[in-house]
Each structure stands twice: as structure tokens, then as C-alpha cells.
Amino acid sequence: MKSIMRFVNWSLGLASSTVEFYAACVECGEASPVVHSAGERQVSEVWALQHAGANPSHRSFRAYQVSAWSATPDDTVGDPPTS
């Protein structure tokens, strides 16, 4: 049996238009509520300031903006990379 192999180009794209915004305390791992609009992003900023006020030694936070991606093969046949 013969096999034909070809190089396939792949691309990444958004799997969903939904984006999640939230913040997490580096010290304890507690996280802000998740919001799905850039306009509501202030929710996580206010949460971080309130968390720091309630826990004076918790001064470091990570801000997250999360989106889902999907990998899709291109339908065209490409040449294999030469490098």
C-alpha cells in the first residue's frame, strides 16, 4: 500500500468571541470575579485594590485576559519548510 504525505499549513484563530477578564493575588491565589467585557475590566482592578486594602501584605496581582483559540488546517497543499 502506498501513502502520500504532504505538508499542511495550520493557522490559529479565535474559537469564540468571548474573552474573560480577571485578576488573581500572587500571595494567596484568591481571584476576582470573571467578567466578559473590556468595559467591565474595572471590576478586577477595583477588586485588587480592595484585596490589597484588606490584606496589606498582598501587593502583587496577575491580570488575565483569556480567549479560546482553535487550530485549523489549511485546505491547500504547501511546500515543506526548507530551513
Rank of each mutant, 00 (worst) to 15 (best):
S3T: 15
E40Y: 11
S57T: 15
G78Q: 03
A23H: 03
A24F: 00
R62T: 14
F7T: 10
S44G: 06
A23K: 04
C25H: 04
G78Y: 04
S44I: 06
H58L: 03
G78A: 07
A71P: 00
E20V: 00
V46D: 15
I4L: 10
A63L: 12
E30L: 01
E30H: 08
R41C: 13
A63W: 12
S57N: 11
S32M: 04
S37Y: 09
V77L: 09
T72Y: 11
V35T: 13
A38S: 15
D75E: 06
S44H: 13
S57R: 13
A38C: 10
Y22L: 01
V66D: 05
P73T: 03
K2S: 07
H51M: 04
S3W: 06
E30R: 02
V19C: 01
R62K: 12
P56G: 09
L14I: 02
H36N: 14
V66P: 00
V43C: 12
H58N: 06
A68I: 03
W69A: 04
V34H: 08
A23Y: 04
E40D: 15
A63S: 08
Q50V: 12
R62V: 10
M5S: 07
C28K: 01
L12D: 02
S60H: 10
E40T: 08
A15P: 03
S37V: 09
Y22H: 06
G29W: 02
F21M: 02
D79H: 03
N55A: 10
V77Q: 08
A48L: 09
V46Q: 13
V46H: 13
L49Q: 14
A54S: 15
Y64A: 02
G29L: 05
L12P: 00
R41W: 07
E40A: 14
F61G: 08
F21H: 10
V43T: 14
L12W: 01
D79K: 04
R6T: 07
H36F: 12
A63D: 15
S67C: 10
E30W: 03
A68W: 07
S67F: 11
V19L: 00
V46C: 11
E30G: 05
A23C: 09
S67A: 15
Q50M: 13
H51Y: 05
V46N: 14
Q42H: 15
A15T: 00
A54C: 06
S16K: 01
P56T: 08
V8K: 10
F61E: 06
S16Y: 00
S57C: 13
H51K: 04
N9A: 12
E27A: 14
P73Y: 05
Q42M: 15
H58Q: 05
E27N: 08
E20W: 13
S32A: 05
P73W: 13
W47K: 06
V19G: 02
R59Q: 15
S70F: 01
G13M: 07
S3Q: 11
W47Y: 08
I4G: 01
E27Y: 09
D75Y: 09
P33N: 14
H58R: 05
S32D: 06
H36D: 07
N9R: 12
